[in-house]
Lab assay of single mutants.
Amino acid sequence: MVQRGSKVRILRPESYWFQDVGTVASVDQSGIKYPVIVRFEKVNYSGINTNNFAEDELVEVEA
């Protein structure tokens, strides 16, 4: 279970941040499909630095 402030590695192959490390900004408990919002240092092609992920697409590298 990841929690706010954890450092996580992204396992979603189609993601711009695949294999990159980001910080968990928040975790939604309402039961949505992609409840974990992760914030990154670098921006993607659209200038965005956050994205939603499912918990099984993340691996915690640092608490």
Rank of each mutant, 00 (worst) to 15 (best):
M1V: 11
M1Y: 11
M1G: 14
M1H: 14
V2K: 05
V2L: 15
V2G: 03
V2N: 02
V2F: 15
Q3W: 04
Q3C: 12
Q3E: 07
R4W: 05
R4I: 15
R4F: 05
R4E: 12
R4S: 10
G5S: 02
G5P: 02
G5Y: 02
G5E: 02
S6M: 15
K7H: 08
K7Q: 08
V8A: 01
V8Q: 01
V8E: 00
R9D: 01
R9F: 04
I10Q: 01
I10G: 01
I10T: 01
L11P: 02
R12W: 07
P13K: 14
P13Q: 13
P13V: 14
E14T: 14
E14Q: 10
S15L: 04
S15K: 02
S15A: 04
S15W: 03
S15T: 03
S15H: 04
Y16F: 15
Y16G: 00
Y16S: 02
Y16K: 02
W17T: 01
W17S: 01
W17C: 06
W17G: 01
F18G: 00
F18D: 00
F18R: 01
F18H: 05
Q19I: 07
Q19T: 05
Q19W: 11
Q19H: 09
Q19S: 07
Q19A: 07
D20Y: 10
D20F: 11
D20E: 13
D20M: 13
D20W: 10
D20P: 01
V21L: 10
V21W: 05
G22A: 01
G22T: 03
G22M: 05
G22D: 03
G22K: 02
T23A: 03
T23Y: 09
T23I: 13
T23L: 07
T23P: 01
V24H: 01
V24Q: 00
A25S: 10
A25Q: 14
A25Y: 10
S26P: 01
S26W: 14
S26V: 07
S26Y: 14
V27K: 04
D28R: 07
D28S: 10
D28A: 09
D28I: 09
Q29E: 10
Q29L: 13
Q29I: 11
S30P: 05
S30K: 06
S30G: 10
G31L: 10
G31V: 08
G31F: 09
G31P: 07
I32A: 12
I32D: 08
I32H: 10
K33Y: 07
Y34N: 06
Y34H: 09
P35M: 11
P35Y: 11
P35A: 09
P35C: 14
P35H: 08
V36E: 00
I37K: 15
I37H: 11
V38C: 07
V38S: 00
R39L: 11
R39Q: 13
R39D: 04
F40E: 01
F40M: 00
E41M: 08
E41Y: 08
E41P: 06
E41S: 09
K42E: 07
V43P: 15
V43Y: 15
V43D: 08
N44C: 11
N44S: 08
N44F: 07
Y45M: 15
Y45S: 15
Y45K: 15
Y45V: 12
S46T: 09
S46P: 03
S46A: 15
S46N: 14
S46K: 13
S46M: 15
G47L: 02
G47F: 05
G47M: 03
G47E: 04
G47W: 05
G47H: 04
G47R: 01
I48M: 14
I48E: 15
I48A: 13
I48C: 15
I48F: 11
I48S: 14
N49P: 03
N49M: 06
N49L: 05
T50M: 11
T50C: 15
T50F: 14
N51A: 15
N52P: 07
N52G: 09
N52F: 08
A54I: 03
A54T: 05
E55W: 15
E55A: 13
D56H: 14
D56Y: 14
E57D: 05
E57W: 05
E57G: 03
L58D: 02
L58P: 01
V59Q: 14
V59R: 08
V59F: 09
V59H: 07
V59A: 11
E60Q: 12
E60C: 13
V61C: 08
V61P: 04
V61R: 02
E62S: 12
E62I: 10
A63W: 12
A63L: 11
A63C: 13
A63G: 12
A63Q: 12
A63T: 12
